[in-house]
Computed example of a mutant assay.
Amino acid sequence: MNKSFHAFVTEAGGFDDILFGEKDYRNYIDKARHLCPGKGGAQALFEYFRRIQYKNDGFFNLMEFDEDDRLKSVFWADACSRGAYKYFVDVVTFDITYLTNKYGMPFAPFILLVTRIAKVPEKFGSHGQYKCGLKNKLLSCVYDSLTIEEFENSWKSLKDTFSLYENAWLQSLYAEREFWVPIYLKNSFWVGMSTTQCSESMNAFFDGYVHARTNFKEFVDQFNNALKTKIKNKNQVDFNSVNFTIHCISHLAIEKKFQDVYTNAKFKEVQQDIMGMIYCHCRFEKMDEVIATYVVDDQVKAEDFIKEVT
């Protein structure tokens, strides 16, 4: 490839007259080798799929090629995945057009609340009032706002109090508020996961199995290995749930009910909610026709202190 690249340079009349570097050239060739049928590429993947389908009638695959006979997209599903799809009505596909993350696998471009909040110390750490109200007011604005109107008023108050109208980073945050502020996302279905967890769980699934230079055939092979490990771990967790019982932390009948029907992992989540209920105190305030209004005093653990929330 080195000689081929220098042939381009010579033909162009020198490095200054060529529109791409040697690294770009190597990346293009590497990508072409992955996409075009041949040993270690699409043809090997096709043969691999054919062998799996011969052993497993429930296996399905589909490969799509473009007009230049280059691999455009791949879909495959084993019997276990197809069964899960029938039960949960959910499916994951991999489109090779979006090989963008560290493994070369596709992830949606999440604009994450966690990444935004994590940058607060970096962006405001040098502010004179960062530890004297600014940080707490910003976090309260983001996490404690129960309506969009409340968030908007709190955000305006934040800028007024700390003279942040000229802060470009804060303005960019506000412009994207519908993508990361919890109150704007409360009606979206996240399958019980935060956006970061979706990405993290996918990374954890492939860790140790694939890397940036894994070709398609190797990826599918390693994907199956990762899936087998996942199933093995799930079976172990199921075994533990059947044979080991987590004790209840309250006398509530509903906790006992969940203890009987949930796995240990899911039951631990229930217990976290019950612990949250224990720290809540409910007071009846008024009755307006058919609407009863209550005031709830809550104690929320925030970092290393307890925050009183009404």
Rank of each mutant, 00 (worst) to 15 (best):
I249E: 01
N233F: 00
S250E: 02
A253Q: 07
S241Y: 06
N243Y: 12
K234Y: 10
A226K: 02
K228C: 06
N240S: 13
N243S: 15
L227V: 00
F244C: 13
I246R: 03
F244I: 14
L252H: 00
Q236Y: 02
Q222R: 13
K230L: 05
N243F: 14
Q236K: 13
H247T: 11
S250Q: 01
N224V: 07
A226G: 06
H251L: 07
V220F: 12
K228E: 12
K228H: 10
Q222C: 14
D238Y: 08
F239R: 10
D238A: 11
F239T: 05
I249Y: 00
H251F: 04
I246D: 03
N240F: 11
N224C: 12
C248D: 08
L252Q: 03
L252K: 02
N225T: 09
V242P: 01
A226E: 04
A226Y: 00
S241T: 11
N243M: 14
I231H: 09
F223M: 09
L252D: 06
N233K: 06
H247Q: 12
H251R: 06
S250M: 03
T229R: 05
N233R: 02
N225E: 08
V237G: 02
N233V: 01
A226I: 02
I249L: 02
D221M: 14
F244A: 10
I246C: 03
D221H: 15
L227D: 03
N235S: 04
H251Q: 10
K228T: 07
I231P: 01
T229A: 09
N233G: 00
Q222W: 06
N235E: 08
T245Y: 12
L252E: 01
N224Y: 11
D238C: 12
S250F: 02
V237Q: 15
D238K: 09
Q236I: 12
F244H: 15
K230G: 00
A226R: 01
H247R: 11
N233S: 05
V242K: 15
L227P: 00
D238P: 03
Q236L: 11
H251C: 05
V220Y: 08
F239A: 05
H251G: 12
F239N: 09
F244E: 14
S250G: 00
N224S: 12
H251W: 02
N233Q: 04
L227C: 06
N240M: 10
Q222V: 03
A226V: 06
N243W: 13
H251E: 12
S241Q: 05
N225S: 13
I249P: 00
F223P: 02
Q236M: 11
F244S: 12
F223T: 11
K228A: 08
D221S: 15
F223Q: 08
L227Q: 06
T245L: 14
Q236P: 02
N240T: 09
N243P: 06
A226C: 07
K234W: 07
L252W: 03
S250T: 13
K234L: 14
F239M: 08
N225P: 01
F223E: 07
S250A: 05
